[in-house]
Structure formats: C-alpha cells, structure tokens
Design a protein around this nucleic acid. Sequence first.
DNA 1: ACGGCTCTGGACCGTATGGTCCAGCCGTCT
DNA 2: AGACGGCTGGACCATACGGTCCAGAGCCGT
Lengths: 201, 201
Amino acid sequence: MTAALTAKGRATRARIVESAALVLRESGVSATLDDIRSRSGTSKSQLFHYFPEGKDQLLLAVAQYEADRVLDDQQPYLGCLDTWEAWYRWRDVVVARYEAQGDTCPLGTLFHQVGRSTPGARAIVVELLRTWQEHLAAGVRAVRDNGLLPASYDVDTAAAALLAGIQGGVSIMLATGRPGHLEAALDWGIARMREGAVPVG
Amino acid sequence: MTAALTAKGRATRARIVESAALVLRESGVSATLDDIRSRSGTSKSQLFHYFPEGKDQLLLAVAQYEADRVLDDQQPYLGCLDTWEAWYRWRDVVVARYEAQGDTCPLGTLFHQVGRSTPGARAIVVELLRTWQEHLAAGVRAVRDNGLLPASYDVDTAAAALLAGIQGGVSIMLATGRPGHLEAALDWGIARMREGAVPVG
DNA sequence: ACGGCTCTGGACCGTATGGTCCAGCCGTCT
DNA sequence: AGACGGCTGGACCATACGGTCCAGAGCCGT
C-alpha cells in the first residue's frame, strides 16, 4: 500500500504527519482528527487514504517522527562524548532542548493516548530508550578508554542511571515548569563519574 | 456543599473515589463515567451529586487520593532515613511498590487526562514532589548530622537528583516493564552519597 | 488521446460519553 | 408522627468524534 505512493502522495502524507505533530504539541490529548485535517489543509478522506487503519496508525507515525527527533536534536554532541568538556556541552544542549519544548511532552502524550495495549507504541519508546542509553554507554566507555576512568568502571549502570535521571528531570519539568531537577540530575551524574576519575598526572 | 454531607453521603463519596481509582488503574485513559458508576454501584445522578462540576472534579479527587498513597506507601521508611541501612530498606520498598504497581501510572494518567491547563492537577503533583523531596533532603541531612557525610554536603542537589532518578526509573519501567533503571538510579544515587562519606574510624 | 490509477472533497453515519432532569426513597430532627 | 432535605435511580439529551462512502479531479504511462 505504501509502495503505490506518488511523489505528490508522499508529500501529502508527510504534511499530515508534521501537522499532526504540531497539533498534538499544542492541544495534547484533546487533539482531534478534525484539528489535524484543518491544520494540514487536507480532507477527512485523505487522512484515511494514507492511514487506512485510522487514528492510531496516524498517531503511531507521529510518535515515530517525534522519537526520531529526540536523538537528532542531541547531535552531534551525543555522538562524541569522549571528554568531560563534551559531556558538559551535551548537558547544555539537553537542558536547552527540553526547556524550549516547554511543558509539552509529545511522546508522553502519544504514549498515553495510544495506550500500552498497542505493541507498536511500546516498541517505539523501548527502541528510543535503548538507542539513547547505548549512546550514553558509548560515551562513558569513550572517557574510560581515554584513561579518564578506571578500566573496571561499571559503564552500563552509569548509563542506565543517567538515562533515568534525564527522564525524571524532564517529567518533573513538565509538572513544575522548572528545569532544576533535570539540571541537578545531569550535573550530579557527571560529577559522580568525575569523582571516580583517574587522577591526571 | 461538602458541609451538608451525612455519614452515609461521606461513605458513598469515598466509595466513588476509591472505585474510580481502581477503574482508572485498570482502564487508564479510556475509563468512563459509566465504568465508574457501575464499579461503585452508584447511579449517574450520584456522581454529579457529589461532584457537581463533573468528571474533572472527580478525577481531581482521585488524583489527590493517589498522591496521598504515594508517600504513605513509603512509610515508615521514608520518614527515618538516618543510616545507610535505612536508605537501603527504603530503596527496597520503593522498588517493590512500583513493581507491584506494574505498568500503570495512576497519577500520570490523571495528569494527562485532566491536562496541564487545570491548575488543580498541577498543584497536586507539585505538592507531592515538594513533600517527597523534602523527605529525601531530611534523610540526607540526617545521615550528615550523624557524621556520615561532611557538614558541607550539598543536600538539596542530592535530593533533587535522587527524586529525578526515581521519577525517571518509574517512567522507564512503565515503558519497558523492567525495574532495572529504577534500581540503577537508586543504587547509583545512594552509592554516590556513600562515596562522599566520612570514613568511619 | 485514452484508460486507469491515485488523490481529493465533503456529505453522511453510528455511537460513545459527559451531562441534565425529575420523581421517589430514606434518614433525621423536632 | 410528620416534614424537610439530603440521597438515589434511571430515563433522556446533545454532541463531538472516529470512521465510511462515493463522486470527481488530476496525473501518468502507453
């Protein structure tokens, strides 16, 4: 079904997904197919032409779109966490990104809307978290291999704890509007690694 | 309006809130007034008799009910975090509590449903986080005052980072079904404090 | 130029759901 | 005992929303 798409068709489909993402960021849970339709300048039939399985299929596409952006927005910093300075630059980008996002949580909204029942939504989030943590672990490994951390350092627990701190910091920011917890989690985490650092001669 | 409640009325109201909480834990977002009505063995008119402002008011009452349970479930451990052993006991209770809760997030659901727009929902969550963090800070202060941490220890950042780690760990558990991140955040956090500990003679 | 495909518009439908209303029950107070 | 007022049942309503359908426009290969 996707194979039959014309260039025009592909453009329309993309427009729908992007518009839907915007609407969802603004209206959250209460976003309706009609909102998306009017925002994207399409008609009801187009929505169901490109997403025959209905709303959930569209929301899933939006979720994938948003998930892709999460990691993209952290690049190129997330990809080269090999010095403490790089870690701090990345920290700043993460804080800035989520501060800019304000009190909306696109993926959270989508996840709650589509529901745990749908395996697709879960898969997207799980995959995002896995990749994210892998990047963090690669960063910890990089500083370790640079001789900044002892060879025996527990990379995976560190990456997992860092990821948890970020997620929690973002959650709390959504509730309170303050980025303090996200900052505390990142700073505390990075500082903790540095405390375990190999003293530089 | 609340003042005019008979003992019977108060009982019915409580039954409605508790039933609603159960239904929301099971059905999540898709919980409907009719589900709550049938689960609580009441009628539509009773729902609106006790919550004249409608569904949002009821959901808010449920949110308060759930928020109260969050901290209660961590007692008495959360209240006396004055030794490292106490911290570990508390850690186990937190992990057990959220593991038992499984992949449902009552407060998260409620928050997403009622929406950020409603000031009431936000206030409940903010208050919960504030109290929770205060307990953690009190615990850090307690071990510090017991001479286990240096007097200059940054209590507030530690408490904030710990809270963020918990929140994130729970979020990730909701998505993946695995408690690993919650455990990693707690263990890493407590270990970090112990690394800063005053050596015992 | 023509046949067939995709793409688009928009009227229409079924229904789930929050909310209203009113009649009658029951407890409680004097 | 009687009356007042909270308590309860359940029929009823309005409507928002996801989804269907069909007719026609527009593009594309042959």
